[in-house]
Amino acid sequence: HAALANLTQTLEDAFRRVLVGYMDAWRRNTTAQQEALQARVDAENFYYVILYLMVMIGMFSFIVVAILVSTVKSKRQEHSNDPYHQYIVDDWKQKYKNQILSLEEARATVHQNLGAAGFKTSP
């Protein structure tokens, strides 16, 4: 009975070693394939991340440049030699002074109504 238990224990240990060794080898092989596949997927994902960032940065740069160009163009048109802008830039102070002076002169001029004062205005 002790020999049979010892034989059973020996067979169990041998079977366990074979099965565990086979499973470890299979897992190592599968793990190596998975690691190679994961490395390839990671490289492709990294490539697509770089491509995505390049596209986003390019679009952002295009929008910023378009806004800058339109702003510079509008400023250039604003400072052109059109008469309206020249009036605003150069002449508005003088025009304002002239208007104030003409209003003061109009107030200073007293109009007499000779009919109200009792004078006859008939010939």
Rank of each mutant, 00 (worst) to 15 (best):
T109W: 05
G58D: 00
Q34D: 07
A108F: 08
Y47F: 06
V55F: 06
K73M: 09
A66H: 04
M56Q: 12
V41S: 02
I63H: 01
H85V: 10
K97D: 13
I63C: 03
W92N: 15
A36W: 01
Y87E: 15
F46I: 06
A32C: 03
A43V: 02
S61Y: 06
R107C: 08
A43F: 04
N81D: 15
Q77T: 08
A25E: 07
A43D: 09
I67L: 07
K95G: 04
N45G: 09
Q77W: 13
W26V: 08
W26H: 11
E105W: 11
W26T: 10
A43W: 03
F60I: 10
S80G: 12
E44N: 02
G58W: 02
S102L: 14
S102A: 15
A108P: 00
A39M: 00
R27M: 13
T31S: 02
R28H: 13
H79N: 11
A32F: 01
E35N: 14
L51E: 13
V41L: 12
Q86R: 09
A36G: 05
Y52I: 02
T31F: 01
W92G: 09
T109A: 09
V49R: 10
E35W: 06
K75F: 15
I100M: 09
D24V: 08
T71W: 08
D42F: 02
T109E: 14
V55A: 11
A32G: 02
R28Y: 11
F60Y: 00
T30R: 04
I88H: 15
R40W: 02
N81R: 05
A108L: 15
D90I: 01
N29A: 06
R28L: 10
I67V: 11
K97P: 00
R28T: 11
K75T: 05
H79T: 10
A39Q: 02
W26E: 15
D91Y: 02
A108M: 13
H79Q: 10
R27Y: 14
Q34F: 05
E105S: 06
S74C: 11
A43G: 01
A43Y: 07
N45K: 03
V89H: 07
S61D: 05
P83Y: 09
Q38I: 04
A32S: 04
V69F: 04
V64S: 00
T109V: 10
W26N: 07
R27L: 15
Q33S: 10
H79I: 11
D91H: 00
D24E: 10
I67M: 10
R107N: 14
I100N: 01
R40E: 14
N29C: 06
E35G: 08
M23F: 15
L68H: 03
I63Q: 02
I57P: 00
R27C: 12
W26C: 12
L53R: 11
Y47A: 09
N45V: 09
W26M: 09
D42I: 01
M23T: 14
E105G: 03
K75Y: 15
M59R: 07
I67F: 11
A43L: 06
A32W: 00
Y47K: 10
N98P: 00
Q99H: 08
R27Q: 15
T109C: 03
V69N: 05
D82T: 07
W92H: 12
D42E: 07
A32I: 04
V69M: 01
T71F: 08
A108S: 13
Y96Q: 14
A39R: 07
N29G: 04
